[in-house]
Nucleic acid binder design. Sequence first.
DNA 1: CACTTGACCTGTCCGC
DNA 2: TGCGGACAGGTCAAGT
Length: 291
Amino acid sequence: MPELPEVETVRRGLERLILGSVVASVEVLTDKSFRGDPAQLAGRAVNRIGRRGKVLIIELDGQLSLVAHLKMTGQMVYRSDESGWGAGHPTGSLIGQLPDASTRVILRFTDGAALFFNDQRKFGWLALMPNDQVAAIPLLAQMGPEPLDGDPWPEFHRRIRRHQRTSIKAALLNQAVVGGIGNIYADEALWAARTHPASLVGDLSDRKLRAILRAAASSIELSLSLGGSTDRNYVDAEGRPGAYLDFAEVFRRDGRPCRRCGQSIVKTRVAGRGTHFCPHCQRLKPASAKS
DNA sequence: CACTTGACCTGTCCGC
DNA sequence: TGCGGACAGGTCAAGT
């Protein structure tokens, strides 16, 4: 679920809530959700919260990092008072009493607060490792530029042109081509750039690829301003949903009219994923016809 | 290599 | 209401 805007929203929340907090203890309820030795966390303060693509990086004392990937259903929910809703419980939280059935790991802090890693489907993970090993995680080592980086185009261009025979949708989902995009923002970017998701990269002009990258950046920026997208599971660090899907043009809008031309949005399968687009605005190979 | 498909899990929704 | 099957936002291993 969580893509760049959702993970960044969680990151900002955690930065506000646990920066400087000292870990008292860690409880691992589901073994496969935690890699490394959880006991190593005790006594360490949180020094920095970073992010690369969809990966969250919590740096602690002693050159250690707690790396987190939320995958489809992961949540990082903070409670200032572990034994209940918490004194600082914000309005609008979708999450009730914690831990709940999906809680996999609990970090307890010395001030009585706690951070709950919830993950219904158990695809996500936390991994504790030395700082200098983080960049070597294959996903991070291979990751392409992010749409909101200073000038992602040259590197994006170099990387996407290695994948001429695959669909633009598959290429956008490939984190080694561009970091942080998932199913929602891929569909939104392709609608904005009037490109059919099944178009082959090799059939698209540089100008079109550039427009798609810019469109992805715009969708991600708008989503960031709205706290991300909540379809089912996603919540921020205080349990609140994001509002972006109210503004989405195609994602989960199949059967409803395209806001540009009025034709019904269609849902199909491209690159093995549910894919939403406007059959009128997004024709196959529109770029080769134009360029 | 580039590319596709299925696997990893649990929960929900839809049709019968 | 119950049951089976399809499907869900992400990556990775294994296949062509």
